[in-house]
Simulated assay, not measured.
Amino acid sequence: MQIDHGSRQPYYAQLVTGIEQDIAHGVLQPGEQLPSVREMARQHLLNPNTVSKAYKQLEAQQIIQTVPGKGTYVQAADSSLLQAELRERFTQIVKLAYQSGVSIAELHDWLDKTGEML
């Protein structure tokens, strides 16, 4: 996971996205411990409050769980929750594509090409 210090996207949001992607790609496994807030901040040259904000958002989404005195861990994925989140994000992307003039046929083509890469 990389933090782009030149990006307009807030650091905490980049961290949230990076952790979500690491989980989705199997880099982080359910039950795996994440670095402490201070360690994650040190690794990515961030303020610990920024990392804490990202961790709190991920906890609210039930992606990670903090066990007091033990650490922060990746939660086992609930497939129905994950599918609902994906459906919501997909709907947002389709709406944005529509507003940008992308046709449904083009979206189908993109999905087919992405599916071929997997």
Rank of each mutant, 00 (worst) to 15 (best):
G18D: 11
V94H: 06
Q33Y: 00
Q65L: 13
R38F: 01
V94N: 04
K70S: 13
Q14Y: 00
K70A: 14
V102E: 05
I3V: 15
L82T: 09
T50E: 09
H108E: 07
S52P: 00
Q14R: 03
V67S: 09
T114R: 06
I63T: 14
G101L: 03
L107M: 15
G69Q: 06
Q99V: 02
L96C: 03
G115A: 02
L46C: 03
E32W: 09
Q33W: 00
G115V: 00
Q65A: 14
V94I: 14
D112H: 07
A77K: 05
L118E: 11
Q2N: 05
Y12A: 12
I104E: 14
Q75N: 10
I93P: 01
L107A: 10
Q33F: 01
M117E: 09
N49Y: 03
I23S: 05
V27S: 08
A84K: 10
V102K: 07
I3H: 07
Q61E: 15
Y55H: 08
D4W: 03
L34W: 07
T66L: 02
H44E: 08
V51W: 04
D22T: 02
V51A: 07
H108W: 04
R87T: 12
V37C: 08
R87G: 02
E88G: 05
S7M: 06
V67T: 14
D109P: 00
P68C: 01
T66Q: 08
D109S: 10
Q14E: 02
L15I: 05
S100Q: 13
Q75F: 03
Y98D: 10
N47Y: 04
L58S: 11
T66W: 02
K53L: 10
A60C: 01
Q83N: 13
G69P: 10
Q57I: 14
S52W: 07
L96K: 11
G26R: 08
L86Q: 15
D22V: 00
G115D: 01
T50A: 06
D78F: 07
T66I: 01
N47R: 11
D109N: 08
H44D: 03
A105D: 15
R89H: 15
A76F: 09
G31K: 14
R38A: 07
L82D: 11
P48I: 00
E116N: 06
Q65I: 14
M117I: 08
L118V: 13
S103E: 09
H25T: 13
G26A: 06
V74H: 06
A84F: 01
E116K: 12
V102H: 06
L58G: 09
L86K: 14
A13D: 14
T50P: 04
I23G: 05
Q99L: 10
L96P: 00
Y11E: 04
N49C: 00
Q61K: 15
P10S: 13
L81F: 03
V67I: 15
Q29W: 05
Q14S: 01
I63M: 12
